[in-house]
Design a protein around this nucleic acid. Sequence first.
DNA 1: TATGAATGAGTGTTCATTCAT
DNA 2: CATGAATGAACACTCATTCAT
Lengths: 225, 225, 225, 225
Amino acid sequence: MDSKPGTVHDVKAQVSDEALVAKRRGQIIASAVELFSHQGFYRTTIQDVAKKAGVSAGLIYQYVTDKEDVLLLALLSVLESYKQEIPAALEGLSDPLERFVAAIRAYCRVVDQRREATVLAYRSTKSLPDDRRQLIKDCEIETNGMIAACLANCIKAGLMRDVNVELVTYQLVTFAHSWALKHWRLKELCDLEQYIAEGLDFFAQALLTPKGRRQWEALSTTTIC
Amino acid sequence: MDSKPGTVHDVKAQVSDEALVAKRRGQIIASAVELFSHQGFYRTTIQDVAKKAGVSAGLIYQYVTDKEDVLLLALLSVLESYKQEIPAALEGLSDPLERFVAAIRAYCRVVDQRREATVLAYRSTKSLPDDRRQLIKDCEIETNGMIAACLANCIKAGLMRDVNVELVTYQLVTFAHSWALKHWRLKELCDLEQYIAEGLDFFAQALLTPKGRRQWEALSTTTIC
Amino acid sequence: MDSKPGTVHDVKAQVSDEALVAKRRGQIIASAVELFSHQGFYRTTIQDVAKKAGVSAGLIYQYVTDKEDVLLLALLSVLESYKQEIPAALEGLSDPLERFVAAIRAYCRVVDQRREATVLAYRSTKSLPDDRRQLIKDCEIETNGMIAACLANCIKAGLMRDVNVELVTYQLVTFAHSWALKHWRLKELCDLEQYIAEGLDFFAQALLTPKGRRQWEALSTTTIC
Amino acid sequence: MDSKPGTVHDVKAQVSDEALVAKRRGQIIASAVELFSHQGFYRTTIQDVAKKAGVSAGLIYQYVTDKEDVLLLALLSVLESYKQEIPAALEGLSDPLERFVAAIRAYCRVVDQRREATVLAYRSTKSLPDDRRQLIKDCEIETNGMIAACLANCIKAGLMRDVNVELVTYQLVTFAHSWALKHWRLKELCDLEQYIAEGLDFFAQALLTPKGRRQWEALSTTTIC
DNA sequence: TATGAATGAGTGTTCATTCAT
DNA sequence: CATGAATGAACACTCATTCAT
């Protein structure tokens, strides 16, 4: 119920009614993500965002201090959606390998759903002043932590080699992001599920121990995907 | 002598003396890459570029039609440097695995040398209008082709599994780019050479056939890396 | 009970309860004088005034038609305080010279008490549209009239030379105002009472007849000032 | 030849050609003084100033950093004109009383010539940020110094009483300013020369010693004024 | 060729004012 | 009566681009 640091709630509004703030920010962010993703941050004017959100330009400044704040809010909303999807996908799963696969798959799918927004994050994080950019980095590190935990679990269970967890996590994360970043080309090579399948296979080869490999085969035959 | 597609020569200058054009563009591009990399495209003014290049603002428009042209030129100069480094690194090598390793290593090193510029490419390509962006994509595809060729060679020689070459190429390329994109975090985990070593090991595990693996071991013991 | 010209009552309110109107306007004007004096009229927003007055911005517009009306009200309240202090200081005095001295002294003291507000009046009267500015001028003329009357009395009594009453009145008024307008410098030269004493001495020299001069000496020795 | 502190030259231009800077600033300041005087600083837009000056809005920002800088420049130009007129009027005069009279008269005349601008100075100095306002104060102090010197000379020559020079200087200065500040009323009482004459008579009465008075009479009969 | 002064359209932001509740 | 969220016109300032020299 409390607003945690590094979340959307950090940006202070001049309006006190919390429900209204949530609603308005929702409108603003949705429009902003859409427009920033397509036209870029600098080519999008606040008036554009306002018009698309169906509000006046002045209103935006009651919920945000800066145009840059709109960007921050937009980026955080994207990263936050990552942070929500992954735990949801892991719910009920206990097998390390299953959790690993579910996490990667969930990540890739949310990237796919928010493809433009993911590209936005890559393009525009550097447009933020240092302090606000830090919020983004913190959020990214947190998400990565979820992937890293799945990986570490597999290693602890003797299913994967003892690799540098954080480095490999970056490989995994980057693999998911690439679906958005290079979609203009990748979409001609395969669809999302094939991309995930190929990727998982690739990572399996790279990471699994013989023991892990046996479980993996079992998993592959029982799971329909 | 002919202007090839996807190269610097596509942007038309108002000045006829080719040597002068090359010199002036050199000045302009160098300043632009520097400034765009640090402050971003939109935060950098043409006057900034002019001042840093030691020329007048008006002069720039005799060698370029647009501010966007400056960006295009800057990005192409970065991508071109990739295209030059890789063949140079492969020169004299004939063993498929050696060529593969050399290509990856060369790529990572150029990325490291032009880290800011690499980030710039990610941030700013979308700031170009579609037609000019295509030039960038073409250039990227060409570079990827070099990596892909090395990979394909290894497969043909039975040293690597028969994976989807283009997909895996993207993994390799992305791995190199990540050094720049995530440098703020990666630099705290390892230095460039460790990053390359870990990566090569990872890809080896993922790709090598038993035969390839034997050669790889041999390679690892003979080569100091 | 009737609204007199040149007073606060000219500005029409949308609220009928007169007592409430007086109370609300009191709040608003007090905040406005304070804020306008310190930050100036244009740098002060209606929201600032509302917040300081502890009311909502909307409420102000039920007691005022304009932001300019708030300024008018504020200025009038300042000038009105002049108009009240001077007669109060003269009460019970009948000697022309004593009344003259008392009037000047009272004027200087109100100016001192409302120093910022006096400066405000100088700065901001011109910000009013002509018709409203006229109200201010009327008010100022009325106050000047009190000083002028004291001066005229001294002349009629043969205590002062037969000068142009209105012109000298302006000198006297200006002398009082200067304490506020040039306070940044004057405060380093003397305190208020010294300022008054020096001024009175100066005006005495300039105005008194030989007869007046004798009375003045007498006054000076009996009165502690 | 060097730019002295506290003068117009303090505001830095982006244009290097000094003659051009002088010319452009002349245009800008002239328009600004005119417009600020009539409509006030806040009611005047930079576009207004630009249009009246016959230049583009953007141009102004090559010669000025701020709208506030335009105000500073305008105010300084007014105060500077005071500083020039007074010494010019004193040239060739050596008699202390003559110099005193000439100084006051010159001051009043320049105030009359730049009546609106003088009012502007009173209204708008407080609109400047503290550091820039200091420049104005410095300039004012300098001008006052000229008057004060004339006054001090008369005292030293035994022509005037030994009053507090700086305080009386403020009275003299304020007298001149009042012609502008209260012109709406004063112009109905007398014209400028009468105003000056009455004022000089008043100050003479207040300040002259018997010796000074004798010289004054002589002066009055010989000088046509 | 090169310069750099000039342009003016474009945009983030503010704030007086309104009005539904 | 009072509130305060919403509006939208207004304005300072920037900067890509031009063009006379």
